Amino acid sequence: DEWTVEDKVLFEQAFSFHGKSFHRIQQMLPDKTIASLVKYYYSWKKTR
């Protein structure tokens, strides 16, 4: 599952609005599965 720079920026924006409500985040990133969002979240969180 490839994440473009745009995907990553959108994820951060969606996360700032919705927190860990992955269903709502998915509405902003409809091409990503919930599982993909959760997996990305945990790898992204480690870099914070």
Rank of each mutant, 00 (worst) to 15 (best):
D1E: 12
E2S: 09
E2A: 02
E2P: 13
W3C: 02
W3D: 03
T4S: 12
T4D: 08
T4H: 03
T4Y: 11
T4E: 05
T4N: 11
V5Y: 15
V5I: 11
E6P: 06
E6R: 11
D7S: 06
D7A: 02
K8R: 09
K8M: 14
K8L: 02
K8T: 08
V9K: 12
V9E: 11
L10P: 10
L10R: 12
L10V: 14
F11L: 00
F11S: 03
F11V: 02
F11T: 05
F11E: 03
E12D: 13
E12R: 00
E12Y: 11
Q13G: 00
Q13F: 06
Q13A: 10
A14D: 05
A14R: 06
F15C: 15
F15V: 10
S16Y: 10
S16E: 15
S16Q: 13
S16H: 15
F17G: 02
F17I: 13
F17M: 07
F17L: 12
F17T: 15
H18W: 01
G19M: 06
G19S: 08
G19V: 02
K20L: 05
K20V: 03
K20H: 14
K20E: 10
S21V: 10
F22V: 02
F22L: 04
H23F: 04
R24L: 07
I25W: 06
I25L: 10
I25V: 03
Q26V: 04
Q26K: 15
Q26A: 02
Q27M: 15
Q27F: 04
Q27V: 15
M28Y: 06
M28L: 07
M28A: 10
M28I: 11
M28T: 09
L29D: 02
L29C: 02
L29G: 02
P30C: 04
P30Y: 04
P30G: 00
P30D: 06
D31E: 14
D31K: 13
K32M: 02
K32R: 08
T33S: 10
I34M: 11
I34E: 09
A35K: 13
A35Q: 11
A35M: 12
A35C: 09
A35R: 14
S36H: 11
S36P: 01
S36L: 00
S36A: 08
S36G: 12
L37C: 00
L37H: 12
L37D: 09
L37Q: 07
V38R: 13
V38I: 15
V38Q: 08
K39A: 08
Y42L: 14
Y42E: 14
S43A: 13
S43C: 14
S43D: 14
W44H: 09
W44A: 02
W44S: 07
W44V: 00
W44P: 03
K45V: 09
K46G: 12
K46E: 07
K46T: 03
K46R: 09
K46A: 13
K46C: 00
R48A: 11
